[in-house]
Design a protein around this nucleic acid. Structure first.
Lengths: 198, 198
DNA sequence: CAATAGGGTTAGGGTTTG
DNA sequence: TCAAACCCTAACCCTATT
């Protein structure tokens, strides 16, 4: 049962053919994993993803995550932590907490399944998206408006758009990234044109 | 870092009426667009939305659609094709009345094979097998998929495989044992590699 | 070739509209 | 009401750089 922990399995290199797993359904991060990542960054520093992942102190929880996954997750956590990037949906209680490894299950109550370090975030805006506020981002109109307002016949650079909008209203911390994504989408939709000066 | 080729964006000159903001009229998909999308998926596979959108073979029909639009449309087509009903309202709190006895029909994770409306013919399921001859049993594909999805260059421990699969779907009570057995068999078949960390 | 940073893409849930 | 079309974000991928 306890099995030798050193036994490892991996796909054959020569086998290529990653065919079978065509659509990996996606693995949402659990609270335990997030906490482990936070602890790992706290211990080794952000950027030491491989070190964190290999640290036996966290490797239990993070065994299914790659160092790149850690990096990506930390980016997401950083974005949503600062600024009001994400509106926490309290739709469903979401009792999905899946313990990583049920090593020793203390029968104690354990009433806090969410052990985030500093609270502070969440519940930023309990009021439903009733009106006013910046609840509905609806970035497309904002961006098109900005580009149009600038009236540059040769086009405007992304940084200029960012500055233009940022000067006129509060934007989320992740707006730079959202802007980039949104511009790409607008280009794909043929609503704006992509020009490359050389 | 620096001198990224000045990337510029500007509004489309003429043509598009596409009211930018709020009043944006919904653009219903035409038959030609749907057909192009089907052909694109048939050629590049579902999930390669950007590739399909950029393919000159379809870009004419899909020029006003973004890769995300393609994805969304394919989802809608999939829904209406397979059975009916809204998009999985999924309001099943899943009462645990039933102990975890597996249903006789273990549904593989395979995400929506091809919900073609026109049916066409099978479209040659390319991901089926390699030169392996025999169709692998259900568990084999499941396990290989799990190992592949974890993307661990150094290999994954058996417990990690178990947890990974268990988190994503119901498994039989004896799955731990079955897993061990199947892994041995896969190793014997040279489909996976057995590694022992010191 | 290994690791990281950062932009790009997709999957999935949510929202709006006809 | 309901579903197609659309939006937003988390998770994942790709590639340049070191």
């Amino acid at each position: 049962m306890s099995c030798s922990p050193a036994l490892i399995v991996r796909r054959k290199k020569s086998g290529e053919r990653l065919s079978i797993a065509m659509g990996a359904p996606k693995q949402k991060w659990t609270s335990e994993e997030e906490e482990a990542l936070r602890a790992g960054v706290d211990k080794h520093g952000a950027g030491k993803w491989r070190t964190i992942q290999k640290d036996p102190e966290f490797s239990h929880c993070l065994s299914t995550r790659s160092n790149i996954d850690l990096k990506d997750k930390w980016r997401n956590m950083s974005i949503s932590a600062s600024g009001q990037g994400s509106r926490e949906k309290m739709r469903t209680p979401k009792p999905k907490a899946i313990p990583c490894i049920p090593v020793s299950n203390s029968p104690s109550v354990t009433p806090a399944p969410f052990p985030h370090k500093d609270a502070a975030l969440t519940t930023a805006d309990a009021t439903k998206n009733s009106e006013d506020g910046k609840v509905p981002p609806r970035y497309a109109a904002l961006i098109i408006e900005a580009i149009t307002s600038m009236q540059e016949p040769n086009g405007v650079e992304i940084g200029a758009i960012f500055n233009f909008i940022e000067q006129r209203q509060e934007v989320a911390q992740n707006f730079r990234r959202v802007l980039s994504s949104k511009l790409r989408r607008l280009v794909a939709q043929n609503k704006i044109e992509r020009v490359t000066l050389l």
